[in-house]
């Protein structure tokens, strides 16, 4: 009896002592005045606010048990990582296309059932989403935020002929790969969220891996190139690839790219192929959006199987 009592006292005092160690974030955390997302219907803004803002904005509110050590460290790390992936505090400074992209990103986080984190909704039931909440955002994006293809206009403008153009390296050191147009198309996508049309190219290693059914994980040497063009309305009612927007690469090498999930990530934008990204770590943005596919080696595309029909 006495021993038990001592143990309980011991644990209790340890827990109390632990309360002295707290993450820095807690000191600066205060219940800020919540500001509505501008330009979005109130119901939609409300959903994001109640379910997402605690980790994806500067408007975090901590409940009493969130403040307890060790829970508070967990909460602080959620906010840190959450804001890195998606931060609504910058909303006001963003142009409409960026805002829409952010909402599509958020919606896909909800649809993948990753967000809001289940460990969070277990304790903050008000943040749980129901189908209604999700449909609100979906309907808004479909009806209002759709980007329309540009009407017919000559797209030969700026069809860069400069095959010997000097292309700068990506900030993470990856060099441009000019030969992807000779690779095979493993899929195409229409992106109505940003009004583009895309071809996803796979290099010979990728095509072979698909054919052999060895795509999870993809073998070293696999490279994907994804090109995006603006949609352009043709005279016959079809939509065609217009202005070139960008090309992005994922290069598989488990050792060399160990720090970035086994892939080298790079993007070059516009006719001048300007490397994308401000810092070496720009690729954390790529990874965080590709993260829901972590069980598929971070690859979204379900590729075609490309068979030689004359070989049996």
């Amino acid at each position: 009896m006495k021993l038990k009592f001592k143990i309980v006292i011991g644990i209790l005092s340890l827990v109390l002592l632990a309360q002295l160690i707290r993450p820095e974030e807690l000191h600066s955390a205060k219940a800020q005045q919540v500001k509505r997302l501008a330009g979005v219907p109130e119901e939609v803004a409300k959903v994001l606010e109640t379910s997402c803002f605690d980790c994806h904005s500067s408007q975090t509110s901590w409940l009493w048990f969130d403040r307890l050590t060790p829970v508070n460290f967990l909460v602080a790390s959620h906010i840190r990582d959450g804001r890195k992936a998606l931060d609504f505090s910058q909303w006001d400074s963003l142009a409409t296309p960026k805002r829409n992209a952010m909402l599509y990103f958020a919606l896909n986080g909800m649809l993948s059932k990753e967000m809001p984190l289940s460990s969070y909704t277990a304790l903050h039931p008000a943040a749980k989403l129901d189908q209604n909440d999700i449909d609100l955002l979906r309907a808004y994006l479909l009806n209002t935020a759709l980007s329309k293809p540009a009407s017919t206009k000559s797209n030969s403008k700026g069809a860069a002929q400069s095959s010997v153009m000097e292309v700068k390296r990506s900030p993470n050191g990856i060099a441009y790969l000019p030969n992807y147009r000779n690779w095979k198309a493993i899929s195409t996508t229409e992106r109505f969220d940003n009004g583009t049309i895309r071809i996803i190219f796979g290099n010979p290693v990728a095509v072979k891996a698909i054919h052999e059914g060895k795509t999870n994980p993809w073998p070293d040497g696999t490279i994907f190139a994804k090109t995006a063009w603006k949609q352009e309305q043709g005279k016959d009612g079809s939509v065609y690839a217009g202005q070139f927007v960008q090309v992005e690469f994922m290069i598989k090498d488990v050792k060399q790219y160990a720090g970035t999930k086994g892939w080298g990530w790079a993007r070059w934008k516009g006719e001048n192929l300007l490397p994308y990204g401000k810092t070496v770590k720009f690729d954390s943005e790529c990874i965080s959006c590709h993260r829901p596919e972590r069980d598929h080696d971070y690859v979204f595309t379900t590729p075609f199987d490309i068979k030689d029909l004359n070989k049996k």
Partner: peptide, 27 residues
């Protein structure tokens, strides 16, 4: 794999277009 969209057997087709160079996309 997107097997449904892959061209595996279509009668009389002499070669697999998916093996060729993709040149344009449209909707």
């Amino acid at each position: 794999i997107n097997t449904g969209a892959s061209i595996t057997s279509i009668s009389r087709l002499p070669e697999n277009p998916l093996e060729m160079i993709p040149m344009a996309v449209s909707l």
